[in-house]
Design a protein around this nucleic acid. Structure first.
Lengths: 339, 339
DNA sequence: TGCCTGGCTTGATACGTTTTAATCCGCAGC
DNA sequence: GCTGCGGATTAAAACGTATCAAGCCAGGCA
């Protein structure tokens, strides 16, 4: 039983033609019930399993879709993936999850692979924004939806969260609590999310009548816990008179790193320093000092992106590209307090 | 350019036969260099992309492999997936990552899907151990490697970590630090990992001359942060004379939940209660009190599993199944201390 | 000149499925 | 008895690729 059985053998075994077997599989209602039963019996007796490759070849396109993320280890992306998966499953599609690891080379390799698989479409948070490979893929007819990144050209669908607003919300919360000496810990400026949140932070400062220079900027080289720790050591090293009373971290991983370093240096959170993160990943609530954070609708982001993609795959040429933008939401926990 | 171009059009454009084009793609060395150049020119000019479905149909099997995990949101599994991915990529294979979510129904659905895709093999941490669907899949010729779970029957390859030893190591560490009132927070007993770590813990107690009843057992219903918090509330509710001086959590997510709850109740870690986790996920080191934990070689687990699978896919009938067992390793940080 | 050799190239076939158009057959209506 | 109809079935073609056996041709040898 080591060699898979084909529709042909099922047909022979049931004494019908292959077309009938195929009909039983795809439009059971048009075949007479006695024949149907006979075919089904043959199928389970022989252990027949459809060959997806053959179906795809015939259909001209596959029943899968590609999702390319920057970092599978970041809970933000696994939650997003979860949303995509739900929606895809509902439509009977499988998801190929690819991890570009922030490297353009890996991203390109995966895009090639997905194109060879003739996926119905690609959901991607691109490493760089003007990628030629991605444009080419799309030009050749594969629907592409940008995830957590806005389309510059309106030539494609995209799903994102308003990060400027998010930055504004975060800093407004700190200002409302009486903080004025505030620092922003941002990753590489090339990452749009980082830049937007900074812009939002400045907007909030401005509205409060504070000059932009007033917001202290601490740069880190990546959006992970280790970088947050390094930033934390910088903050801890400041004399307490110059130390910010509140820190806005550009994501929760950074915030967790900061928090750990504060604790290690016996700087109390939130009494000495308030910390606010971004994303509201599950670990944020579970931190030793539960993190105040700006929540992004992660799963919904995934849902929506997948739905847009399916829509586009359905509509074909007639498709109207859409740019969906969600609003983030403040979640107050214990890591921030009144000054 | 919306309809993909096939090998046939490339052939026409280059003035050769389809066989030659195929040769250029698969065995370039056997075709004359001038022809090769002409074909390559045609390929890039027309924007030809191989059709993977057709290749697979012809080859009889796909160039992908399936990985089914219990919980993508658990960093243990994403790290493992990373290891699998590395190894698979090296062999030119893509990975379909499936999330069974601890539900047998979803697991079965994914197994069907993978079989229809004619994957080269399946790597799986099964929801239940005696699954008939899995056995059937294997009987029909798809190589299966059990991941983080030992094969009961030796009828298949498996990769696991010695969890009994891990439990022993954890509790021995606590005993050596002078703790005697120790609690074990375990998930559902049906999960092998949970049971094995418990057994190891008892073994260490026994060696130290302590009766099994001495190890306090706290059951939780799942291996996640929320369950850890619930366990933490139980522990905090005990009068301090009866409260364990050390807690061994069956994984890091539980330990993080415990830690948070201790902090909330002003029970100091490690001064009042030592906590040791299991897995050593990245968040363990980044917790506000960096967690002592029992490290599993997660990526290596993935590497090895993938390699075993590829071996089996290669060897065919002649394959000798292997059971690989890794040893866990103690990582001491700040959440445990001398009594 | 005829034959062989070896390097390249190619025609034909198969992989497993779906779908279209055609066929078959029993039966009602005239 | 013939026609037409409609439901059930089927033969055949197509999807794009890889491979095998066969073919072609230039050049070397007898």
């Amino acid at each position: 039983m080591n060699v898979p059985v084909s529709i042909k053998e099922v047909a022979a075994h049931a004494g019908v033609s292959v077309a009938t077997v195929s009909n039983v599989l795809n439009r059971p209602e048009i075949v007479a019930s006695t024949t149907r039963d006979r075919v089904n019996a043959a199928i389970s007796e022989l252990g027949f399993v459809r060959n997806e490759s053959a179906r795809q070849l015939r259909a001209g396109r596959s029943r899968t879709l590609g999702l390319v993320v920057l970092d599978v280890a970041n809970p933000f992306f696994t939650d997003l993936a979860r949303g995509v998966e739900d929606e895809a499953n509902k439509a009977g599609l499988a998801v190929i999850l690819c991890n570009s690891d922030d490297q353009e080379r890996k991203e390109n390799r995966y895009l090639d692979l997905l194109e060879e698989h003739r996926v119905q479409g690609v959901l991607i948070t691109p490493v760089v924004s003007g990628g030629t490979r991605l444009a080419r893929l799309q030009r050749r007819g594969t629907p592409v939806v940008l995830v957590d990144s806005r389309s510059p050209s309106r030539g494609q669908c995209s799903v994102a969260v308003d990060d400027v607003l998010g930055g504004d919300i975060a800093v407004s919360h700190l200002l409302a609590a009486g903080h004025e000496r505030i620092a922003y810990v941002g990753g590489p400026a090339s990452i749009r999310q980082v830049a937007d949140r900074y812009e939002g932070a400045l907007r909030a400062m401005d509205r409060a009548g504070l000059p932009p220079g007033h917001l202290q900027l601490i740069r880190v080289e990546a959006l992970n816990v280790a970088s947050g720790q390094r930033a934390g050591r910088q903050v801890a090293a400041l004399p307490s008179g110059e130390r910010p009373t509140a820190v806005f971290a550009s994501n929760d991983l950074i915030a967790l790193g900061l928090l750990q370093e504060m604790t290690r240096h016996r700087i109390r959170v939130p009494e000495d320093v308030s910390i606010i993160g971004y994303d509201d990943i599950d670990f944020a609530a579970a931190a030793a000092v539960p993190l105040t954070s700006v929540r992004q609708p992660r799963q919904q982001l995934g849902h929506t992106a997948a739905r847009l993609l399916l829509e586009e795959a359905e509509d074909g040429e007639a498709h109207q590209h859409r740019q969906v933008i969600f609003e983030p939401e403040l979640v107050v926990r214990e890591s921030t307090t009144l000054l």
